[in-house]
Deep mutational scan, measured.
Amino acid sequence: KELVLVLYDYQEKSPREVTVKKGDILTLLNSTNKDWWKVEVDDRQGFIPAAYLKKL
């Protein structure tokens, strides 16, 4: 499984997104879309802008 580091706080703006904090380490589920990556946060799955994440 691939992990990503959150570079900036992000507040979800729709039900398909998730809220994260800078410094969080998340499981990356899908990065095929270059703009929005799907991650897992506390048993929730959702999207975050790829620019907010860095692969570890």
Rank of each mutant, 00 (worst) to 15 (best):
V4Q: 00
F47A: 02
S31T: 09
Y10D: 01
K22V: 07
N33W: 09
I48G: 01
V41I: 13
V20P: 00
W37C: 03
E17T: 07
E12N: 06
W37H: 03
L29D: 01
K34F: 09
K55A: 07
K38G: 06
L28R: 01
V18F: 08
A51R: 15
Q11W: 15
L7F: 02
T19E: 03
S31E: 14
K22I: 05
K54H: 12
Y52L: 11
L29I: 14
L3P: 04
E12C: 13
A50G: 05
V6P: 00
L53Y: 00
K38I: 15
P15R: 10
D9S: 09
P49R: 05
Y8K: 15
S31V: 06
D35A: 12
D24G: 05
T27W: 14
E12V: 07
Y52G: 08
V20T: 04
F47I: 08
K54R: 14
K1C: 13
L53Q: 01
E40S: 09
V18I: 14
G46W: 06
I25A: 02
I48T: 07
L5F: 07
E40F: 06
F47Y: 15
D43V: 08
I48R: 00
D9R: 02
L28D: 00
E12W: 08
L7W: 02
L29Q: 03
V6Q: 00
Y10L: 01
G46R: 05
K55V: 14
P49V: 02
G23D: 07
V6R: 00
L56Q: 06
R44Q: 07
V20M: 02
V39K: 00
P15M: 08
G23E: 02
L28P: 00
L29V: 14
G46T: 06
V41A: 12
Q45V: 13
S31K: 07
A50L: 02
S31I: 06
T27M: 12
P15D: 14
E40Q: 15
L29R: 03
E2I: 12
L7K: 05
V4H: 01
E12G: 14
Y52K: 06
L26G: 13
D24A: 12
R44C: 05
V4T: 03
S31M: 08
V6A: 07
R44W: 10
I48Y: 01
W36Q: 04
T19M: 04
K34N: 12
V20G: 05
W37S: 02
L28G: 01
A50W: 02
L3I: 08
R44A: 06
V41Y: 10
I48L: 13
P15G: 09
K22W: 03
V18K: 02
W36V: 04
V4Y: 06
P15E: 12
D35V: 14
E40N: 06
L7P: 00
T32R: 10
L29T: 06
Y10T: 01
G46Y: 09
K22G: 07
E12M: 14
T27A: 11
V41M: 09
G46S: 04
T19V: 04
A50R: 12
G46M: 10
L53W: 00
D9E: 05
R44K: 15
E17H: 05
S14D: 13
W37M: 02
V41C: 10
F47H: 06
P15L: 12
W37R: 01
D43N: 13
A51S: 15
N30I: 07
Y8E: 13
E40R: 09
L56H: 05
E17A: 06
K1P: 14
E12I: 09
P49T: 01
R44L: 06
Q11I: 15
T19H: 04
L5E: 11
D35T: 12
E12K: 12
G23H: 06
L5W: 06
Y52Q: 06
L29K: 05
L56K: 03
Q11P: 06
T19L: 03
R16T: 15
L3Y: 15
L56M: 11
L53D: 00
D43A: 12
E40W: 08
L28M: 04
A51Q: 13
P49I: 02
